[in-house]
Simulated scan of single mutants.
Amino acid sequence: MSRLISLSLAVLMYLSLTGCSALTNSSDTYWQAPPMAIPLQPTLELEAQLVRIDQILAKPDLNDDIRAQLYFRRGLVYDNLGLRDIARVDYEASLNLMPAQPEVYNQLGVYFTQSGEYDMAYQAFSSALELDQSHDFALRNRGIAFYYGKRYQLAEKDLLSHYENNPNDPYRILWLYLNEMESQPEQAKANLESRYQAAKKEGWGWYMVEIYRQKQSDDAIIKGLISTAPDNRALAERLCEAYFYLGKRYLHEGKTQAAFDLFKLAMAANVQDFVEHRYALLELEGILQTQMNQANAHETAK
């Protein structure tokens, strides 16, 4: 059984015991029923892609390059369906046939980060960047892997370079801020505001930065996201992100149970291809592990 599956089962067991408490927002009111989107479901298009790829892969006369590309494409479909262990098998099969694929190394690195295999994640992202120095996602993802691996100085280097490649991207500002908060929280807040003021602020992603600027209430931010979402998919994506970043802020504020609930909500809409959905489970693991360690220490002290 993989570590990711074991972790999922542990979190699910914890959820069954704790339920979902009311969430306190920054205005000291309560979300008795937090805003939700209808959870996204596998589409007919994804299922049809799997069938087509399986049919082509069954042909005996495919050359290695085409077969490698098909394994990668099928791995992406499995990944989007949340079947990440199966996706990893296809990614590795693709690399065995055609090793020089930076995008495959990038996807494998994300998988390793999710499953807490940080050294393997660093190697995968570094391989992607050796093959393609301009691979911006691999640079960001390696920075995030360093962040979750608590190697904050290395994360700073990658995330700062990623930010400098596009200072008008709110998510680059966010991940750089989250990393800086671990070692220099006061300077991180000043840097966040400075970068916010210098940026051209276009798009709804800036609501996520507002979560940390705290110039608006959490309710106002969530209502703004809801009011501008054109359909359920957009709503699911926006709430996935908002609940993840709110959870990160609440965790820094010491509101552990509220943060735990928010990470659950970030996963609830099944936005499988968003990094916020992917890493919400890591955050849940961190909270769960901390609470288990505290419980064990309490028992030992008796």
Rank of each mutant, 00 (worst) to 15 (best):
E202C: 08
L174V: 10
A220L: 09
D273A: 14
K248D: 08
A124F: 00
L262S: 06
K248I: 11
K150Y: 06
L57G: 02
N80A: 15
S194V: 10
R67W: 01
S16P: 01
N106T: 09
A188N: 08
A242R: 04
S127D: 10
I86S: 09
N141G: 00
E283K: 13
Q69I: 09
L46I: 06
M292T: 13
R278L: 11
P167H: 06
N293L: 11
A100Y: 08
S127C: 04
P230R: 05
E276N: 08
G143L: 00
R172S: 13
H162N: 13
M292C: 07
K189H: 14
A268E: 10
M1V: 13
Y250K: 15
L97M: 03
S194N: 11
A297Y: 06
G224K: 04
R3L: 13
P39N: 06
G203I: 06
E103W: 10
P167N: 05
S183D: 09
V11R: 12
T228M: 12
L46M: 15
A269Q: 08
K189L: 09
D261W: 03
L17K: 15
D90S: 01
W204I: 15
E276F: 10
S134R: 10
R142Q: 03
E180T: 11
E186V: 15
E283N: 11
P102W: 01
A48I: 01
R67G: 01
K200E: 15
L239I: 03
L246T: 02
Y250S: 11
E210W: 06
I53Q: 04
T18P: 06
A297G: 00
A268P: 01
R213Q: 07
M208S: 12
K200H: 13
L12N: 14
N168G: 00
L23G: 05
I144E: 01
N232W: 08
G254Y: 05
Q272M: 14
E45S: 14
Y171Q: 09
V271C: 14
D261S: 12
A220K: 09
Y118M: 10
R73N: 13
A121P: 03
L154G: 02
Q214G: 03
Y91V: 05
L176I: 09
N106D: 11
L76R: 12
I56T: 15
Q114F: 00
A269S: 15
H298T: 12
I86R: 12
A138S: 09
A295G: 00
S27C: 05
R172W: 00
S126T: 13
L176S: 08
V89I: 15
L44C: 07
Q289W: 07
Q32W: 11
L288Q: 12
P39M: 07
W206R: 01
D61I: 03
G19V: 08
A297Q: 12
G205H: 03
L282S: 13
D273M: 12
K189R: 15
S161E: 14
F112P: 06
F72N: 12
A259L: 01
Y250V: 04
L17V: 11
Y212K: 04
M36A: 15
K302R: 14
G19N: 03
E241D: 14
S127W: 01
A269N: 10
D54H: 10
